[in-house]
Nucleic acid binder design. Structure first.
Lengths: 147, 147
DNA sequence: TATTGTTATACTCTATAACTATA
DNA sequence: TATAGTTATAGAGTATAACAATA
């Protein structure tokens, strides 16, 4: 089934395919793991706190390209599960630092999270060179969202 | 600003970063283009109809990893904008084929769509080799969502 | 007056469930 | 009985607006 002679793939058409492909993969991941205890944003926040240490709502919101109110809702969820906890800011009474708890560290690191399982299995089907390409693209995607 | 010596990036941690990065980029794209007339899913459907010709709701839903009811809502939106139209299926009275209209083709192809503009500007900041990596990764992301 | 965070509300996107019509 | 599509409803995720407290 040879493809019809498409005019050479332009950057423009690639950009369209990128958003389509990303949207589809995220839908798929959410569907495959809808019974999971944490959603993708919550996992992102845990990963970030694990790397950077305690952060404020505003900083977390900025780093995830999200509004502070939205981040607040995510943090409330994580807090109710006992995965993060509040710490007063040492010098600014307005700010609140959110830090991972021991349970948060454990949940984040344990292999049992279904979200990873499904995607890991899919990634395992890639050729080594393809896997390298995919991994190399991750920081680029990250940079795009920050530019 | 050398990076701290992170323990070698495992496939597992890369998979986490991939979903985080994709979620963040899609949020950013949506924010930057929230005044746009079409959402990402609608643009995907137009692109697919442009490539494949007329398709049914069910086939479109399958190809986008989405439920038929959800695809139905997307198609109603496109239909009300006059971008797609219904055609009866030649042999099966239950099925309905959706085809692009001339206006749909025009809207899809015109350069003015803000969604593309913002992302194109961001992509233009990548080095040529990085752009190649990103483009090479697109079919891989697509394949993951279909596996 | 500007910033941090909270509360209340609404919107977008997609899923689930129940139904109709055709096969 | 199975499949395609529709209608109605609900849920997740995130935004906007209005507010309180601190700087």
């Amino acid at each position: 089934m040879a493809k019809p002679p498409r005019p050479k793939a332009t950057v423009e058409s690639s950009v369209n395919e990128l958003t389509t492909a990303m949207g589809q993969l995220l839908r798929r991941v959410r569907l495959e793991t809808s019974s999971d205890e944490l959603n993708l944003s919550q996992l992102s926040v845990l990963a970030r706190l694990d790397m950077h240490g305690a952060m404020t709502t505003a900083d977390l919101a900025r780093s995830e390209s999200m509004k502070p109110q939205s981040m607040g809702a995510i943090l409330v969820g994580l807090e109710q599960e006992g995965l993060v906890e509040r710490e007063p800011h040492p010098s600014d009474g307005r700010q609140i630092l959110f830090a991972m708890t021991a349970k948060g560290t454990e949940v984040r690191r344990k292999r049992g999270i279904a979200k990873r399982e499904w995607l890991l299995a899919a990634v395992a089907k890639l050729e080594p060179a393809e896997l390298r390409t995919l991994i190399d693209a991750i920081p680029l995607i990250k940079r795009l969202s920050e530019s």
